[in-house]
Amino acid sequence: MNPLFFASDGTYWFAPPGTEFAKEVIWTFNFILWVSIVFFVLIVGLCGYFVVKYRRRDGVDPEPSPHHSTLLEISWSIVPVILCMMMFWSGFKTYMKMTTPPANTYDIQVEAQKWSFGYTYPNGTFSKELHVPKGENIRLILNSKDVLHSFFIPDFGVKMDVVPGRFNTMWFNAPEVNEHIVFCAEYCGSDHSDMISKVVVQDRADFEAWLEEEGNYVDRMSPVEAGAYTYDIYGCSQCHSIDGSKGTGPSFKGVWTWGQSRALEGGDSVTVDENYIRESVLKPKAMIASGYEGVMPSFNGQLNDKKILALIAFLKDVNGVPQ
């Protein structure tokens, strides 16, 4: 059993709540559930009882009964109104908290693209998994490079669409050290169901150590290793394989005829060299490889020249080109 979903203290309808929000959502859910169960049992029970008790008998006409009662109509209108207002209020209270972040938040940028999430921390560090310190108010600033996505952490009871052309925000406070899954909940094309990420809640000290290490990977690693890591965390692997198989974009292997000419959409061609790679990363729509659609987003501002050089080293390595 996957611990993300079935921990021992999970309820039937929910995984164990990871935030106060999730606890309140579960409370409201259970309130509505029990009201619903009472009404369902009442109505279906009476229905069944009537069907049996008043079943048709040959030659027996039903005894006369009223077919109108204003008092009944009013009472079965008022009771649902009252219950509905209680549901509304219960949901509204939590919703107001969800949409009103406190003043002291730790802000992380979430950038969504087909089909991965990336996280940028206040010190500029970029990562593929969301790491957060436990017990602190975390605010996420969401933005999409291409189409609609939705950032959904089931265990936290929070979800917000990631909309291109605007910043949506959400916040939470996770009090326990744990790991939680992140889904993309808004349909976003081919690999929508593979757009899954992770939240890692850590102690402050562990979080800072991780942030430090994650931030300087280019300096810590060899260029090929750093390139492979860049390839992984920036989501390149979603479209570009390294085994020669065709994806949304060309594979890094094989089709990369190093130092030779490469056919482009529209009939032009280009020599494959360091500058071609650099331009393809920063201005991907300028030169589109023949047989592909120009759907890659720009990584301008995200990948500096150091990381692009690491990526080039990795590319050369994949193709067996001497460094």
């Binding site: 959502v25 509505i32 009201v35 509905c84 549901m87 949901g91 209270k93 919703y95 929070v158």
Partner: peptide, 13 residues
Amino acid sequence: LFCATTSTDIHLH
């Protein structure tokens, strides 16, 4: 009703 309530719909949407 679960979907009309704001907080639960945020989760269930």
